[in-house]
């Protein structure tokens, strides 16, 4: 699968307020891209724009070279999926029925339900480990189970590209890792191109093939985790004084925020990734 999703000089906003300006980004096909940035930097808006939920003020979003807004929306939905931040399940709906909604873009108005569709749904439930919960009501599930069910819905949609807005919000650390592992499985077994907004920098670094740091509505830096998560970039993007060390378990960069309290002599922390900026670590005070 080589579907590409690209933005060209994309400008997005609500009313007169511009949130994302002149942003060009290409999601590497078949890879996992994580998007990080401070609150209100425009990363969620960017994701909604890429999923054609917002009409650009300027610029375009291209799915395999075609302007996403000039394509029929149902046709886009067969190739591009979106899992919004904390979606709400309709009261009383069962796991199976919810996941079955993911088949909508593939179905005609009066089409009968086929055995093949049941198999696709079963596949999605199995891949996300929620087959046991098939007849349970979604409201009654735990947060981690529910998030798996939403991912199952996205799987049932069978898209080549999947965008997720903070899929780990409200999950404890164990379930965060579980969800991200699951998405990695999906990427590796099906070749799905994934882009997700993540808050936790260390998890973003660990699970990213490609990491994008957004600041004030533009791409501040992108590349491998090692290239993007430098002390200099972290200071610029988050206004945070931090040290970067190598994660001993993965070899990926790990961000240690300094803050104003509790930090001992920094000589004990071996920096690996300070970047080549002489002013690294010297930051204007965060607001």
């Amino acid at each position: 699968m080589t579907t590409t999703l690209t933005t060209e000089a994309l400008t997005l906003g609500y009313g007169d307020r511009t949130i994302v300006s002149d942003l060009s980004l290409s999601l590497p096909a078949g890879k996992i891209t994580t998007i990080v940035g401070a609150n209100a930097c425009g990363k969620s808006t960017l994701l909604r724009g890429m999923a054609r939920l917002l009409t650009p003020a300027h610029g375009r979003v291209l799915l395999d070279g075609h302007d996403i807004h000039s394509m029929p929306t149902k046709q886009v939905a067969r190739r591009l999926g979106l899992l919004p931040q904390s979606p709400i399940a309709p009261e009383g709906i069962t796991v199976t029925e919810l996941v079955a909604q993911g088949r909508h873009p593939h179905r005609r108005t009066f089409a009968r339900w086929t055995a093949a569709e049941d198999e696709i749904i079963a596949d999605a439930l199995e891949a996300t480990g929620v087959l046991d919960l098939a007849d349970r009501v979604v409201d009654e599930l735990s947060g981690g189970q529910r998030q798996r069910v939403w991912i199952a819905l996205a799987l049932a949609q069978q898209t080549e590209v999947l965008l997720l807005d903070e899929p780990t919000t409200f999950l404890d650390v164990c379930h965060q890792v579980e969800v991200l592992d699951l998405l990695t499985d999906l990427n590796r077994s099906r070749g799905t191109t994934i882009a997700m907004v993540l808050h936790d920098l260390n998890l973003a670094a660990r699970y990213a093939d490609h990491l994008v740091a957004v600041r004030e509505g533009t791409v501040h830096a992108q590349g491998t985790a090692e290239e993007v998560l430098t002390e200099h970039h972290v200071a610029a993007v988050f206004g945070l004084d931090a040290r970067i060390i190598e994660d001993p378990t993965t070899g990926r960069p790990m961000v240690l925020p300094l803050g104003r309290h509790h930090v001992r002599g920094l000589r004990d922390v071996s920096p690996v990734n300070r970047g080549n900026h002489h002013d690294a670590g010297k930051v204007s005070p965060a607001s």
Binding site: T73, L82, P87, Q101, H104, P105
Partner: peptide, 13 residues
């Protein structure tokens, strides 16, 4: 009923 963002993502205008 799934919310506007998800419905739009599934191809509902």
């Amino acid at each position: 009923r799934l919310g506007e963002d998800l419905a739009a993502g599934l191809g509902v205008p």
